[in-house]
Write a protein that binds this DNA or RNA. Sequence first.
DNA 1: AAACTACTCAACCGCAGCACG
DNA 2: GCGTGCTGCGGTTGAGTAGTT
Length: 364
Amino acid sequence: MGRSPCYENVGLKKGPWTSEEDQKLSAYIEEHGHGSWSALPAKAGLQRCGKSCRLRWTNYLRPDIKRGKFSFQEEQTILQLHALIGNRWSVMATHLPQRTDNEIKNHWNTHLKKRLAKMGIDPMTHKPKMDANSKDAANRSHMAQWENARLEAEARSVRESKLAFNPLQNQLGSSASADQLLDKAAAPLMQPCLDVLRACQGLPWSKTAKNDFTFPGGGDLESPVPTLNFTVKTLAVPTVGLGSNSAMEYSGVCEGGIGKSNHWSEDNERMDNRRALHGLTYSSEGIRVNENVPISNFMDHMLQNVDNWKSFEGGESSNNGIGSYGGDISGLSKEIVVAQGHDSRPSTLKQKNLLVGDLITTGV
DNA sequence: AAACTACTCAACCGCAGCACG
DNA sequence: GCGTGCTGCGGTTGAGTAGTT
């Protein structure tokens, strides 16, 4: 190993590419394909080494590259994947097909890593930095707390997935790719579902004069599980939000009743399939409640986890804010608050005749 | 307007892994 | 088994740009 860099070859240019060079490279590849990168520069009439050509093509000139700002969804995916697989940019790039590994790496280094660090989270472990002398810990913002909660939940998800992966690794062999493992892990978790969202699709939510709120699909569902039956009160207490990921599975109950998952993607499908263990399955069609998991079970599960955040106060919620817990948490046995969050989209709220701050009480 | 600082991201560097003779 | 060539990947750099003083 340790070959000398190709740029040491006499006469080869380095540094920024000119538009003329770009044109030559693109024209050649479009006509002939890249073939052997090492042979390409001479054939294309470029004074560059093959490596430089490959980089320029894969990171910049390739026609299927999406440029510009990363979406919230893309950032979520990167965060989830980073928690799962670390700095494996090329693997991440396969999950964000229009982004290059270089772009993802740059975005992580310049934005996401700093953002986490600012929140007091170690970007490498995705856990809060435990510095007892640090005033930052005490003064951490609510937002940071939510990010912590979210990331801790991600870690849980990772642990769960690892539990699922190990036997799979044995089945598939050590050479199995991350994708193979993810797909294999997801498959057995897919259960026959009662699609709560579908059940209520097309049926308008109603809010009575008494402010009672009924989930319309609930009573008609032929299912062994209890039906959802929400009532809404006006909330006059601080809200507590549960963000994406961990929180997705918990707030999802509410959000599933209200509308589609706002966190849908192919990657999330894989992640969410694992969450089916908790009685929920996310899909492109919304959130489903598994037939064999009584609603009371996952409500209890939700509440167990909410207990972890009892000390939180204040009105910030994280992602998926539409389905957040709130109020007096100790007495929150069946209540979910509509809180402001990334995805508490005005259109969604309007559609469901909800306001931020509304308290939904489930009838289970 | 100039100087300085911070930030972004394309490009480079060097190592690892693989194929092949 | 070893050497060579090639590709892919992750870490790092630094030129260009934007923002601030």
